[in-house]
């Protein structure tokens, strides 16, 4: 317990000092040079900056609804996973052969461990009194290298993802856009025509009776597309997962597309 002055007085039987400090702000002349009191001068400036940020932020939230893709479906294996953007650089690193397979420990533990461990211990690794970045080239250089690496890996991950899966990127950003393509519930009593059952490469993803699997359910595909559109999708594929050119014979494509367009 702090030693109390012998003639200190208290409020009642409490330990709160009876001596009151007047609650007055000091004069501005008490602050040397261009120093400012925190309240209200500096806080006002901080809050003005915050107000500008808040307005921008609210505009963002209103103009870009948060994305929500389809409900998690462990069997939807055509979905290409992508972590949140600030983990992309770690994710991308694991794709490289020197940080994957037998070397995965390098990618998951050693490199991130050295990077974050080094950052954590920075005060003990960089012990000079010097604070200017130009006067401590090692620390500055390492940080700049790490920054370039992180930016490059993040860019590379996004770039690769958008190259191979152009549409899954759209559905990630466009919010509820993907709800429109949510698969219809499979109708187990539905039996596909022989023209469908001859197409084993289609059945692999869309199921024996078009009930869907990796690919969407096609039992009512005629509601969405007409025969020419279906034929076009069969020929050219549909991102992200469906390849084109699985059926080579044009007559067969036409026959299949006409059949599928009747499914409503």
């Amino acid at each position: 317990m702090a030693k109390q002055d012998k003639d200190a007085t208290f409020v009642g039987d409490s330990r709160v000092s009876a001596k009151r400090i007047p609650n007055i702000s000091p004069s501005y002349s008490d602050f040397p040079g261009k120093n400012e009191p925190f309240w209200p001068n500096f806080l006002l400036k901080e809050w003005m900056v915050a107000a500008v940020c808040l307005v921008g932020f609210l505009v963002l939230t209103v103009s870009h609804p948060s994305p929500l893709t389809d409900k998690a479906n462990p069997n939807d294996t055509s979905f290409v996973p992508l972590p949140d953007w600030y983990f992309l650089f770690l994710y991308q690193m694991l794709k490289y052969p020197w940080a994957a397979g037998d070397w995965v420990v390098l990618g998951t533990i050693i490199i991130p461990g050295i990077a974050f461990g080094g950052l954590m211990l920075a005060p003990w690794l960089d012990t000079s009194k010097e604070r200017r970045p130009s006067k401590r080239p090692v620390a500055t250089g390492l940080m700049l290298t790490a920054l370039v690496g992180v930016f490059y890996l993040t860019w590379a991950a996004d770039h690769e993802h958008s190259l191979s899966h152009p549409s899954s990127k759209d559905s990630g950003g466009a919010g509820h856009g993907s709800n429109a393509t949510a698969p219809a519930p499979a109708d187990t009593s539905f039996t596909a025509d022989a023209v469908w059952k001859a197409q084993t490469s289609c059945m692999g993803c869309h199921g024996k009776n078009m009930e869907g699997g990796m690919g969407p359910n096609l039992q009512k595909i005629g509601e969405k597309y007409d025969a020419t559109q279906i034929a076009d999708i069969i020929k050219n594929g549909k991102p992200p997962a469906m390849p084109g050119g699985m059926i080579k014979d044009d007559a067969e494509i036409t026959k299949l597309a006409e059949y599928m367009a009747t499914l409503k």
Partner: peptide, 18 residues
């Protein structure tokens, strides 16, 4: 303030130099 003597805390926060 009479009961808890909050002024010193408040002045410390408000008046520190930036």
């Amino acid at each position: 303030d009479e009961r808890l003597n909050i002024t010193p805390m408040w002045r410390d926060l408000a008046d520190h130099e930036v």
